[in-house]
């Protein structure tokens, strides 16, 4: 069992947990993720390792559907049934001088360890961070420790630019030059970021989040087409250079079980009518 040693509610949808998992923490590197099963019957859900020390790991998750909601019902002192990792290949840190991070929603969690690593290696790091509302802008205080400039975008305009992160980035590109941009967020946001960056000749790295089961290259569920070739996101990624990714195919794959996911949420999470 893997004990939750600390829990923090970041906003209505997003929470942070520190979990004791020595075998995951020991060799974890930026870009790695883990897989959690909340209880004995749980689904296997992948989450990025945002921070870690010798024996514990920090995860940040958004309550999207059944399994993440179940996870959020656990409190500090409770335990998770299974935690396995570190999975995936660590982020390939490129030899660049300036980086623009682009985070959408909970994507700011997986982006964090990568940007931090670039900053550690001396790159000038800027960040565009977006979310639905001001409350959905995550880890801002942590990012401030190493980002030169942080730009904000919210869907409702409650903080920063009203609109998409891509619009903020496009404005920046008018008078700033970046060697690399790392975009992490919903697939549609990453897809649009690549289109924009191509226009401005900025390289893009992304972190993909297809549906996964084992996370070890065994099932093939997580496959994506990159430059016409099949790659397994769990063992070849989850980070990839974005230019050759077939995002449209991936979006359809990610939605394959949408009706089942809705069904189980209705069945198991919504309050039952007692009358």
């Amino acid at each position: 069992m893997y004990e939750i040693t600390y829990k923090e509610i970041l906003n209505n949808d997003v929470e942070l947990m520190v979990v004791n998992a020595p075998f995951v923490a020991k060799n974890a590197k930026p870009g790695n993720f883990l897989i959690v099963r909340v209880d004995e019957f749980g689904e296997r859900i992948p989450l990025t390792i945002v921070k870690h020390d010798e024996t514990s790991v920090t995860i940040i998750y958004q309550k999207l559907g059944y399994s993440t909601t179940l996870l959020s019902q656990k409190q500090a002192g409770d335990s998770l049934f299974d935690v396995v990792g570190p999975l995936g290949v660590p982020t390939h840190i490129r030899d660049v001088k300036s980086v623009l991070g682009i985070a959408g929603g909970v994507g700011s969690a997986p982006l964090y360890p990568q940007l931090e690593e670039y900053a550690k290696r001396g790159a000038a790091v800027d960040l565009v961070i977006g979310g639905r509302t001001k409350e959905h802008l995550l880890l801002v205080e942590d990012y401030k420790k190493f980002c030169r400039n942080i730009y904000f975008a919210t869907d409702d305009g409650s903080f920063g630019h009203k609109g998409f992160v891509t619009q903020v980035a496009e404005e920046l590109y008018q008078n700033k030059q970046y060697d690399l941009s790392i975009a992490i967020g919903p697939l549609i946001m990453m897809k649009n970021t690549v289109l924009l960056n191509k226009k401005y000749n900025v390289l893009t790295d992304v972190s993909l989040n297809p549906i996964m089961i084992d996370g070890t290259g065994m099932c093939g569920n997580c496959r994506v087409t990159v430059n016409g070739e099949t790659r397994f996101a769990c063992v070849d990624g989850p980070d990839f250079p974005a230019e050759g990714i077939d995002f449209d195919e991936l979006m359809v794959r990610q939605n394959y079980y949408k009706s089942e996911e809705k069904h189980i949420c209705r069945m198991k999470l919504e309050p039952k009518d007692e009358s």
Binding site: G85, P86, L87
Partner: peptide, 10 residues
């Protein structure tokens, strides 16, 4: 369980 040799430990 949950130990991937080569990842969790070499």
């Amino acid at each position: 369980k949950n130990v991937i040799v080569g990842k969790s430990i070499t």
